[in-house]
């Protein structure tokens, strides 16, 4: 299977400090890949490098066969930022329709995306009046309606209840079944177990790149949360190797 994302020896510095220290990994097309790691480990930074908004110091990021940030990729990638980034002084529907017009996907797709994230009843509400979880979902709707080949979702389910999380993950898998590639960051372990493959970051380095089953096997436990704890704690007191 072709790789939708190929990262080679990526080094990123932010605020004068190394944030990604020579990462290499690949994400296969049509899969759901989880990006996990402690807070501050560099998940958002890696995603920004993949969508082409992050200045990188060295290394290569290839997305759908093109260098990250290529103009031609812009209609093929959907990106959900960690902090909801939509217009607070527009309604949910107005936001969705505006984003749809950027991607050329039309009003119907926009209205459907709003329903898909469970905001059908709040479509006419101003975003500034939404609850935190609703706000995040409105932002997600605007990423989903891009109908892209690659969806990069930075903590798409944070602040959502278990039923909604379940629904959203079903949508993610339905999209993957149609050939869309998804890269999803998360802190929630039951979500990690729903991924085809997991990338585990720690302090800007790649600690693991495995399927959930492999990870459980390698760390000798059936509990993914426990796997992560073991992997990360095993290294906690050791200095981070700089690539």
């Amino acid at each position: 299977m072709a790789n939708a994302i190929q990262v080679d020896d990526l080094v990123v510095h932010r605020g004068g400090k190394p944030v990604l220290r020579g990462i290499s990994c690949a994400v296969a097309s049509g899969t759901v890949t989880g990006l996990l790691g402690p807070s501050g480990s560099g998940k958002t930074t890696l995603m920004r490098a993949i969508v082409g908004v992050q200045k990188v110091r060295s290394g290569q990021v290839t997305v759908l066969g093109l260098p990250a940030g290529s103009p031609r990729l812009r209609r093929r990638i959907g990106y959900l930022t960690q902090d909801p980034s939509i217009y607070a002084d527009l309604t949910v529907r107005e936001n969705a329709r505006y984003f749809a017009s950027l991607y050329g996907t039309g009003r119907r797709a926009a209205d459907q995306a709003v329903v898909d994230v469970g905001l059908g009843d709040a479509a006419k509400q101003l975003v500034s009046t939404l609850s935190g979880g609703q706000h995040a979902r409105a932002s997600l709707a605007c990423a989903l309606l891009a109908e892209p080949d690659l969806l990069v979702l930075d903590e798409p389910t944070v602040g959502q209840d278990p039923v909604l999380r379940h629904d959203l993950w079903q949508q993610f898998h339905a999209l993957a079944a149609t050939g869309t590639t998804l890269l999803v960051s998360s802190h929630v372990m039951d979500e990690a177990s729903r991924c085809d493959r997991l990338l585990l970051l720690r302090d800007g380095g790649l600690l693991a790149d495995d399927t959930p089953d492999e990870l459980r096997r390698k760390t000798d436990t059936n509990d993914l949360e426990e796997s992560f704890l073991r992997l990360i704690l095993a290294l906690r007191d050791q200095p981070v190797e700089v690539a």
């Binding site: 209609r75 990638i77 930022t81 980034s85």
Partner: peptide
């Protein structure tokens, strides 16, 4: 608010 950065990842 981050909308500008997001816009610049779209075909805009």
């Amino acid at each position: 608010t981050g909308t500008l950065e997001r816009m610049l990842t779209t075909p805009l």
